[in-house]
């Protein structure tokens, strides 16, 4: 059930950024032991089951919860980003990913598959919806995520 802000999950209070280190380690373990197939399957489950509410909204043609989710958590993690709308297209440009900034700030090597968490979750969120959600990685810690309505 969504809270009054329209988000199913809207954490506040203390932030434990060290979980980005654990995410990085978990991604590295799954990639090395099983390859990208299992890793993407896990992210697909995250998109469809954990983010069930966002996915259901997208299926109905409603992008607002996803955009509010992006904005809330990028602000909360102090990421540098901008969200722009042009017609049916919504674009989030990430100038500095807070997760990668955290790892780099502690000298932790970023796993080569680290950005799959964004790419694969966005792809899976777009499944069975009127939208394509793409992620263009521009460099370590920078990307552009775009929601476009598919041509009908």
């Amino acid at each position: 059930m969504k809270n009054p802000s329209g988000l199913r999950y809207r954490e506040t209070g203390p932030l434990h950024r060290d979980f980005h280190r654990t995410t990085n380690g978990t991604i590295a373990y799954l990639r090395k032991r099983y390859g990208l197939g299992l890793l993407d399957e896990v992210f697909r489950r995250v998109a469809h089951d954990v983010y069930h509410s966002i996915h259901e909204d997208l299926k109905r043609g409603d992008t607002e919860q996803l955009v509010a989710h992006w904005r809330h958590f990028m602000r909360r993690e102090k990421g540098r980003f901008a969200i722009r709308r042009r017609g049916d297209t919504i674009q989030m440009t990430v100038h500095e990913c807070p997760a990668i900034a955290y790892l780099r700030g502690r000298g932790i090597p970023v796993d080569p598959a680290f950005c799959r968490q964004t790419i694969a979750v966005n792809e899976a969120l777009s499944e069975a919806t009127p939208f394509a959600i793409t992620t263009e990685v521009l460099g370590e810690g920078r990307c552009v995520q775009t929601i476009r309505r598919r041509p009908s």
């Binding site: 999950y9 434990h16 489950r45 995250v46 990421g79 979750v121």
Partner: peptide, 28 residues
């Protein structure tokens, strides 16, 4: 980015995916 707030929900999916592959995978 999966927010750090949502790490344990991601972790929970990792456990389920490994258990689906066979119990020895989650134990490993």
């Amino acid at each position: 980015m999966i927010p750090s707030d949502h790490f344990v929900r991601f972790y929970n999916e990792v456990f389920k995916a490994l258990e689906d592959k066979g119990h020895s995978h989650i134990v490993a």
